[in-house]
């Protein structure tokens, strides 16, 4: 199960934070700080997995952005690693050539996309087409 998802840039600014477990605000700040420190200093030649407290972080870097998933120790690492990539592909498709600024100015859209992709800490939909079509439906409603 995914405990939380973080999108952070190299400076540690949070671009998206989604928690599927109840954490207090102070704890969230601590987690975001620690995860950033943990992943930002890792050599690109290292694994994409790193232990974090009693869980593990599966992370991947795209340009200056780090996508980090905190999952259970028994979860399938590579499946979650590709889950990150699928999410990036969806964002890329939606924003046509996504960059960090898209995510900054449209952070609310990113939340919407994420809610179509992951729910309750589990994968909900793995079809890019289904998610993009759904976003189209939602935009019409606004």
């Amino acid at each position: 199960m995914i405990r939380f998802i973080l999108l952070q840039n190299r400076q540690g600014k949070t671009r998206l934070a989604k928690y599927y477990v109840p954490l207090e605000d102070s704890e969230k700040h601590k987690v975001e700080y620690e995860v950033h420190r943990l992943v930002v200093n890792r050599d690109p030649k290292y694994t994409n997995f790193v232990e974090f407290r009693t869980h593990k972080i599966i992370y991947r870097r795209y340009a200056g952005l780090f996508f980090s998933l905190c999952v259970d120790i028994t979860d399938n690492e590579l499946a979650y690693l590709e889950c990150i990539h699928l999410f990036v592909e969806i964002l890329d498709h939606f924003f046509s050539n996504v960059c960090e600024l898209d995510l900054v100015f449209n952070f609310h859209k990113v939340y919407l996309i994420l809610d179509e992709f992951i729910l309750a800490g589990e994968l909900q939909e793995t079809s890019k087409k289904a998610i993009i079509e759904r976003m189209g439906e939602l935009e019409k409603l606004e």
Binding site: M1, T54, H55, D72, I73, T74, D75, G121
Partner: peptide, 9 residues
Amino acid sequence: VDTAEQSAI
């Protein structure tokens, strides 16, 4: 360890 499902192992 704390996991959502008990480890199958």
